[in-house]
Amino acid sequence: MALDRSDVAKIAHLARLAIDEEAVPTYAQNLSNILELVEQMNQIDTSGVTPMAHPLHMAQRLREDVVSEVNQREHFQAHAPSTEAGLFLVPKVIE
C-alpha cells in the first residue's frame, strides 16, 4: 500500500507535526516502505499465536493506593508560559 501526499499531510496533522513541503515525497516513500514490510509480515500464518502487547514477558506490577505525592504546583508552574489563579493558561479552546 503506497501513501500519497494527502496521506502524509493527514498523518502529520494528527500528530500536530509541521513538515516541509519538499520533504513530503521522502516521508511518503519511507512510510510506504514500512507498510510494505507489514504487508510481508501479514503473509505469515500467526493463528494460535497470542498477539504481543509488550516485548517483555512480564506482568504489570501494582501500586498500593496510598498518597505519595505532595503539592508542587509552584515548582511545576515555573515552567509554564502563562498561569493565573493556579490555572495553566492556554490559547482559547472553543468546542
Binding site: 493506593d65 496510598v66 505519595s68 493556579g86
Partner: peptide
C-alpha cells in the same frame, strides 16, 4: 484515594493543580 497511575490525591474540590503531580 489516589490516581490510577500516580500517587497524587483524588480528593474533590482542591485548589487548582495542587493534586497534579
Amino acid at each position: 484515594k489516589t490516581k490510577i497511575f500516580s500517587g497524587a490525591a483524588t480528593q474533590y474540590g482542591a485548589e487548582p493543580n495542587t493534586q497534579a503531580c
